[in-house]
Amino acid sequence: MGRSAPVPASPGSLRFPEGGDVHPGRQPLDRGRPPWPPGATLFNLRVAVTHLGWKPVTRLLPDPHDPGLLASVRITQQAGSRALHAAELYEAIWRRHSSRFPFSDEAVPGSVMNDLMEAARLEGSTMTVTAPREAERLLRITAEAEHRNHSDPYRSAESRRWTARDEAADTGIPTAALGPQDAFGQLPMRDFSAQRSMERLPSRPFERTPALVALATGHDRRSDWLRAGQSLQHVLLVATAHGVRASLLHQALEWPDLRDELRSPTAPFDHVQMLIRLGYGPEVPAAPRRSPPMFLDLDGATCHGDSLPRSSSTRADSLSAPPTTEPTGVCPKGLAGGRRPNSASGQDS
C-alpha cells in the first residue's frame, strides 16, 4: 500500500511484528521532508484491511519513547465491508496517480466537491475550495517556490537523478509522465526534469481558471501531519472514484517562509498541508513503483492460522489497474520468522 501513495520522498516501511500490529511508516517526521506520505500509506492500509473483511484500529504516534514509530494498526475482528466505502476506495487505489497535464474547462460539480470535503473532514482536516483571488495568491507563492527549486543546484540535480529513467527501472519518473508547462504561465507545474533553461521545456495551454483547493489542519503538530496525509489520500481516492484528476502543488510547502505565506490572515483556512488542483483530463502515463518487499520490515515471514491473502505479484505502473491477486497481506494472529531490509523510494505520482 505504501507504494500506492503520493510519495515525493522515501515513505519509510511497513513493519509487521508479532501480535498483529502493523506499523506503517517508521521514519523521522519533520518539516525537513514531505510529511504526508506516511499518513497516505496509513490510509491505504486501512482501506485494504477493511476491504479484506477486517477491522483496523489505528493509533497515531503510539510510543512517546520511539518518535520514529508514526502509527500502529491493530487488525482485529472481521468487520463489514461497507466501512470506509471499502470496495470503491480499494479499487481507486489501483487507478490513482497524479496528473501533470492540462485539464479541460469542465467544472467539477458541487456534489463531487462536497464528497471531497467530507472525505477530508472524516480524517480530521479541512478542504476549502479557493475563490479566484485567493487561488491567484496561492499560485503566485507556488510559482516563487518553483523558481527557487529551479535555481537551487542541489535540488535540480536531485530531480534530474529521478527523471528520464530507464523503462525497466522501478523508481523515478519516466519522461512521458513529466507533463508540459503551462503556455499561459499561470499554473506553476513542478518541473521534475529540472531543465537548466526554462525555454527548453515543452508547453501547452492549461485551463484558464484552475480549480484549486487547500487542505489544511487546525494545528501543525506531528499528529496533524499524519492526519493530513490520511485526508489527502482519502480525497484523492474519492476524486479518482468520481473520475476527477488531481495535481499536487506542494512546492511552497518545502520552503518555511513561503509555507507561512500560504496562511493569509484573511484566508478561510489554518495551516495549509497541501494545495490540490482538480479537474477532468486524459489518462496519463504513470510512474513505476518498487515491489512490496522494499517497503516491509518483517519480524516474521510465515503466517500461522487464518491470514489475509498474500501475493507475489508487483506493480510497475501507478495504480492503473486492479491487481491480479490481493496485495501482500498481514496475519491478524501474528507472524514468525526472519526480517527483511527497510528501504523504499518514490515520487509524487
Results as ranks from 00 to 15, higher is better:
Leu335Tyr: 09
Leu275Lys: 01
Ser104Ala: 11
Arg204Gln: 15
Trp162Arg: 09
Ala286Arg: 01
Gly172Ile: 03
Leu84Met: 12
Leu138Thr: 02
Thr328Glu: 14
Val49Leu: 13
Thr266Val: 11
Ala252Pro: 01
Tyr154Thr: 14
Leu178Ser: 04
Phe16Trp: 10
Leu138Gly: 04
Ser264Asp: 14
Pro11Glu: 02
Thr76Ile: 13
Gln230Ile: 00
Ala79Gln: 12
Pro62Ile: 06
Leu215Arg: 04
Leu249Asn: 00
Pro205Gln: 08
Ala83Leu: 13
Phe206Tyr: 08
Ala71Asp: 06
Leu308Gln: 15
Arg160Lys: 10
Ala228Ile: 02
Ala86Asp: 15
Asp299Lys: 04
Ser104Met: 09
Arg190Trp: 00
Thr217Arg: 13
Glu283Asp: 15
Ala177Cys: 12
Leu52Cys: 01
Ala183His: 07
Pro202Asp: 06
Ser203Phe: 03
Ser104Cys: 06
Gly80Arg: 06
Arg26Cys: 08
His219Gln: 11
Arg339Ile: 05
Pro293Phe: 06
Pro292Met: 08
Ser197Ala: 04
Ala87Arg: 14
Asn44Ile: 07
Asp297Pro: 04
Leu215Ile: 04
Arg3Trp: 13
Thr76Trp: 09
Leu258His: 07
Ser10Tyr: 03
His242Asp: 10
Thr217Trp: 08
Phe269Val: 12
Gly12Cys: 03
Val7Pro: 01
Trp36Asp: 02
Val57Tyr: 13
Leu52Thr: 00
Leu253Pro: 01
Val235Gln: 02
Met189Pro: 04
Thr142Ser: 14
Leu116Glu: 05
Ser307Glu: 11
Val235Asp: 01
Arg33Asp: 12
Ser223Gln: 15
Pro11Thr: 02
Gly229Tyr: 05
Leu298Tyr: 03
Gly346Trp: 01
Thr325His: 11
Gly20Asn: 03
His65Tyr: 10
Met189Arg: 15
Pro188Cys: 03
Arg59Val: 13
Phe16Val: 09
Arg137Phe: 11
Gln233Phe: 08
Ser4Phe: 15
Arg245Val: 04
Pro56Asp: 14
Thr302Lys: 05
Phe184Arg: 12
Ser318Glu: 07
Glu136Ile: 08
Leu249His: 00
Gly218Ile: 10
Ala135Ile: 04
Met117Ser: 13
Cys331Val: 13
Arg46Phe: 07
His97Asp: 06
Glu146Cys: 10
Pro34Cys: 07
Glu167Val: 13
Arg121Leu: 12
Pro210Thr: 04
